[in-house]
Design a protein around this nucleic acid. Structure first.
Length: 674
RNA sequence: GCGCCCGUAGCUCAGAUGGAUAGAGCGUGUGCCUCCGAAGCACAAGGCCGGGAGUUCGAAUCUCCCCGGGCGCGCCA
């Protein structure tokens, strides 16, 4: 509701200034620091004063006096040196917010706006050769939450998880099963069917890394293995298929514990076998987007020139004709002199497909052994039976990839641009985030040797190749154990019941998702079990608890009075009492909660524009905090004035609606009790 | 060397698009369960926003220069 009103105020002011002063100024609105200053403020008169050479305060006064009434606004005041402070019509805002909230879905996906363009969000994309760790979880949770935000605002969203099943990381594990700890195909199949196969591979991968380091000649074996896997034949390829498929299955189960799923798994092997690259290569050559270097250090390679000035690609797009590509420092190799394509080359082809610009498509089937029709879709190299949804053909693409990969992402965009697809290139967004590191204390706790000079650092990055890091399932297990203890101490009667398990599940999931989302994307998370396992303060369970308190009120109310109706109590709005309870002064604290509860739309908007899910965790916390303050101040069930009681109940209902909706966007549910 | 990110309370972090008195959580100290659940609430202590210059009516936020940290820049993926 707040967003709509803010926009209306902004438009009215702009129009008014345009009419009265015949000038257009950039107009921003903001939240005043205190409620006594209104709910919407604009410093526009400072800017206007500069242009008109008049004192800002006088201008503000003029505008405030001459402005026609704005629907939903009670009054406009002048404050400070020339601020325009807008005071919302409290009762009207309350009614409108309740109206909106009653239509709100509480978690179910919102139907896309008819005719909406498709947005692809790619996230997770873990190498399928070992167990997922906390860094992967940050990726998946960020991507999943952003997709929820897009869906909530009416976008058509397709979530993809890219599976690099033909890369060196898979090859390393296959190498381990072939040479380091030889196993037959059947034996590997057996291992892959066992529960903790991803942990087995985690350890094997570590040993292979060391084994390769011990004797560099073994790198040749790896190259051969990789080649076999890429070409898709031989024992190595079969083993890679078994390993990758089983690990992907493990990853899906792990992220599934946090409520994360996908529309499509795209496999690199299918990109290769369907020769997506060949098509892309032709396009790139035809458009001159890549050149064959005829001399210099890159001789024999196909290279792409990158604009040296990223901010102004147009200026550098056309190089001087006499310039030799081989001499350009900014050239990026796309095809090696031996004719094989690099990773970015494949990625360019894949992204052409994402935008529907490649004249090729995958085949599709359901993932998994079971023949059910519910499994996630996965790409295939061979025609499958039956129909499938249309995949790809996005207008906009978000790639959730950590900040270290900013450069390759730029190369992909440059590739699109080189083909003349400037608009798709602009709509290819790198949803960048920083890594999850460990605090030195945490690293020592896990038994890693930390040099003295590193012990003072705020965080240290550990090596996945060395098998260091916190495995996702281990962390979730610890959270569940910890939540289980809390639940048991509060509700011993629920031990072992389905309700108890659901409670533990909701709390641990809520704590973890909230923890990973509360940091802004550019922050390196210094992971520590103490913070991640906390259920107090700014955490998911704190917000969940606010919702649980509402259920408590309803439950208690129903126990005492069979007629009690909770959120559906008599509508106080219809009896003219809302104005009384929200009157400036006495009603300020209630109004504060309402103003915040009505700001969900504005916060969602901000989170989307800034691509910053952390804005929403912040909002959830603020709202829960405001509700808790309200809860302690007003005792609802013992309120004697029936109108006041009805009003407070409606307010409780509203706060709950907004909290539940916000949590749903964060992928968190609140249990009935906790 | 070039490019990107970061430096805010003892610790971990918010302060998007420049705005009014820089905020949370954790930790510390003190209160509050006969009262809708204390996974909570209230109060207190704690800050040259890394340093310096500049732009502006106004700078934690923008520009430049330092200092300190992290990450990229491969015929790896």
């Amino acid at each position: 509701m707040y967003k709509a009103l803010e926009e209306r105020v902004r438009k009215t002011l702009l129009h008014h200034i345009h009419e009265r002063y015949k000038t257009d100024v950039p107009l921003v609105t903001e939240r005043p620091p205190e409620l006594s200053m209104g709910e919407i403020a604009s410093p526009v008169c400072f800017e206007l004063a500069k242009r008109l050479k008049k004192p800002p305060r006088a201008l503000a006064q003029e505008i405030a006096n001459s402005l026609k009434p704005i629907p939903g606004v009670a009054r406009v005041e002048v404050a400070g040196g020339g601020y325009l402070n807008v005071f919302i019509d409290r009762a009207g805002f309350f009614r409108a917010t309740c109206e909106e909230a009653s239509k709100e879905s509480t978690g179910a996906p919102v139907a896309a706006v008819p005719g909406a363009h498709k947005v692809i969000v790619e996230h997770t994309s873990i190498n399928p050769n070992k167990a997922a760790h906390i860094g992967h979880l940050r990726n998946a949770v960020l991507g999943d939450t952003f997709a929820r935000l897009l869906r909530y605002t009416g976008h058509r969203v397709e979530v993809q998880n890219y599976i690099d099943n033909t890369g060196v990381q898979v090859a390393d594990v296959v190498l381990g099963f072939l040479h380091l700890e030889p196993q037959s195909l059947d034996e590997v199949r057996g291992l892959a069917a066992a529960p903790k196969f991803d942990y087995v591979c985690w350890d094997l991968y570590t040993r292979v890394t060391q084994w390769l380091a011990e004797d560099k000649s073994r790198l040749r074996m790896r190259a051969d293995t990789l080649k076999q896997i890429e070409e898709g034949h031989g024992a190595a390829a079969q083993m890679a298929e078994i390993v990758a498929t089983a690990i992907v299955d493990r990853h899906l189960k792990t992220v599934g514990r946090l409520g994360i799923g996908y529309d499509l798994l795209t496999r690199e092997s299918d990109v290769l076998h369907l020769k997506f690259w060949d098509s892309a290569f032709e396009m790139l050559k035809q458009r001159g987007a890549i050149q064959l270097a005829t001399s210099g250090k890159n001789q024999g390679c196909w290279v792409m020139q990158l604009p040296s000035n990223a901010e102004n690609p147009a200026e550098t797009a056309a190089p001087a004709p006499e310039e030799e590509p081989s001499e350009l420092a900014e050239a990026k190799i796309i095809v090696r002199s031996n004719g094989t394509v690099t990773y970015v080359g494949k990625d360019i082809a894949y992204h052409l497909w994402k935008f529907g610009l490649l004249r090729k498509d995958f085949y599709y089937r359901r993932f998994g052994q079971s023949k059910d029709e519910t499994g996630v879709w996965v790409t295939s190299s061979v025609p499958g039976a039956g129909s499938h949804p249309e995949f790809g053909h996005a207008r906009e693409v978000y790639n959730v990839i950590d900040a270290r990969q900013a450069y390759p992402q730029q190369v992909v965009a440059a590739g699109l641009r080189g083909l003349g697809y400037t608009e798709p290139a602009d709509r290819l967004k790198h949803f960048s985030y920083n890594v999850v590191a460990l605090t030195p204390r945490c690293a020592r706790e896990l038994g890693y040797e930390i040099p003295e000079e590193d012990a003072k650092k705020p965080y240290i990055e550990v090596s996945g190749r060395k098998g260091q890091g916190v495995k996702a399932d281990d962390l979730i297990d610890r959270l569940e154990a910890s939540a289980g203890k809390e639940v048991e101490s509060r509700h011993p009667e629920l031990a072992g019941t389905a309700e108890g398990r659901q409670m533990v599940d909701a709390i641990s999931k809520g704590a973890l998702r909230y923890f990973l989302l509360r940091y802004t994307r550019s922050t390196v998370i210094a992971f520590d079990f103490h913070d991640a396992l906390s259920f107090e303060g700014e955490t998911g369970p704190y917000v969940q608890y606010a919702v649980v308190r509402v259920q408590g009120i309803w439950r208690k109310g129903a126990e005492r009075d069979p007629q009690f109706a909770g959120g559906d109590a008599i509508d106080p709005a219809e009896h003219g009492t809302v104005e009384r309870f929200l009157a400036p002064g006495a009603g300020d604290d209630l109004w504060e909660l309402i103003a915040l509860a009505g700001s969900l739309d504005a916060r969602v908007e901000a989170a989307l524009t800034a691509q910053e899910p952390a804005f929403l965790t912040r909002y959830a916390f603020e709202l829960a905090q405001a509700f808790n303050v309200f809860y302690h101040k007003h005792h609802i069930l013992s309120e004697e004035d029936p109108w006041k009681r009805a009003f407070l109940l409606k307010l409780v209902w509203l706060a709950r609606q907004q909290l539940v909706a916000t949590l749903a966007l964060l992928g968190i549910t609140a249990p009935e009790k906790m």
